[in-house]
Structure formats: C-alpha cells, structure tokens
Design a protein around this nucleic acid. Structure first.
Length: 198
DNA sequence: ACTGCGATGTCCT
DNA sequence: GGACATCGCAGTT
C-alpha cells in the first residue's frame, strides 16, 4: 500500500482530478481506519475559472490553495457543510481538486455513526459534504499535508480513459461550461448523473 | 421520479 | 448585504 507523495500531487489540476480517480483516501481516527475509493472529482483553477475560490487572488479563506501540492483545502459553506479539496500544481499557483464522492471501503460502521444511523451505505459518501461528515473532516484539517500518517491517499491502479466520464461541474453559477468534472463510469457511488458531454 | 425550499455561518465587497 | 463547489425533507407527478 503505497502512500502518494508530493510529486504525484504536483500535476496540473485537470490531470490530478482524473488521476485521483480510483485512489484510496484513508483516515486513521480513534484507532480505526476509514477508507474510501475516490470515484468523483472536480478541478478548480485560479486562472480562467470564475468559480474558483482563488479567482480574485489570495484571501484568508483560500490561502491554502497557494501552498505546495498535496495539502488539504477544507472550506465551510451554506452555514453547515464542509467540502474537501486536494491542492494541485506547484506552490504559488492556486488550484485544487474537489473530492465529490467516495465509495466506502472500510470503517463503514464508524461512518454511519458520524453521518447518522439510518443512512444507507450507498449514501454515506456520495457528495462532497457527506464524505466530509463521514470522515469527520472539518476546518481542523484545513492545511493538512497528505504525507502525514493520519490522513493520506494510497496508490491504486489508474482508471482507463474510456472509463472516465467527463461533465460540467455541479452546484456552481459561474464557469458552468467548463468540462472539469470527472467520475468513474457505471460506479454506483457517484453523487449525481447529468447529461454527458462526450 | 422530480421540484422547491429552509437551515445556517462565514467570507468578501 | 449577498452569495455560497450542499443536504435532507416535503410536496407533487
């Protein structure tokens, strides 16, 4: 089980969004292991992407996006939800990959406790705020570097190009036309299916 | 199946 | 003051 290193994360954000599909996100929490396969991502970039939090330059909220690749950028939204990104590209360029869905692999009971009892496995991590709740990712983890021992991503076989579905991104009002959402074809744990571009 | 909407706190102009 | 990279519930078809 090989832990991905900074050299992996130092890709352009679109490549990273594709190459993270199939990898295993792991958190050790209270002596237990939580693990999920990344099945859906979105790319964001400070340039040419008006929906990117860093589009208008560095602020207190988005500062982590400018840090070296492999850091976690966690932000709070809608008064109650967290979303988790992985910083891409070299230090100084603000770009990140939003993790939108995980396929739960290990620690499912603990995820159910964190999410609420009656949630089906299928619905534990099929959304950016849901997976943060299931993995107890909050602002405390903002800025965490993924080479640490408690939170990291484990390598796994890449997803073939023909098994990656490309669509526009979900839930944004600007930059809607950019084809920067990626998910694994026919995977049951993807958050939402919308008309496919190609 | 789909649609609308309220909850709720933080950030940025 | 407005917007927000969401979610779950209630109501409708």
């Amino acid at each position: 089980m090989l832990k991905l290193a900074e050299s992996f994360y130092k890709q352009d954000t679109i490549s990273l969004a594709k190459n993270l599909l199939g990898k295993i996100f792991i958190r050790k929490l209270d002596g237990q292991i939580l693990a999920g396969k990344i099945v859906e991502t979105e790319a964001y970039h400070q340039q040419g992407d008006p929906s990117c939090h860093a589009h208008n330059g560095k602020t207190r909220r988005n500062a982590v996006m400018f840090e070296p690749p492999g850091h976690l950028y966690v932000y709070f939204t809608y008064g109650m939800h967290y979303c988790m990104n992985i910083v891409a590209e070299p230090e100084g360029i603000a770009a990140a990959v939003l993790i939108r869905s995980l396929e739960p692999l290990e620690g499912i009971e603990m995820m159910q406790k964190l999410r609420g009892n009656k949630i089906e496995c299928k619905n534990l991590c099929n959304g950016p705020a849901k997976l943060c709740q299931a993995f107890d990712i909050t602002k405390q983890q903002n800025g965490y570097f993924l080479e640490g021992k408690d939170i990291f991503i484990s390598d796994a076989p890449s997803i073939a190009e023909q098994d990656i579905v490309i669509t526009t991104r979900i839930g944004i009002s600007q930059g809607k036309e950019l084809p920067w959402r990626f998910y694994i074809k026919n995977n049951m744990y993807v958050s939402k299916t919308i008309p496919v571009l190609c």
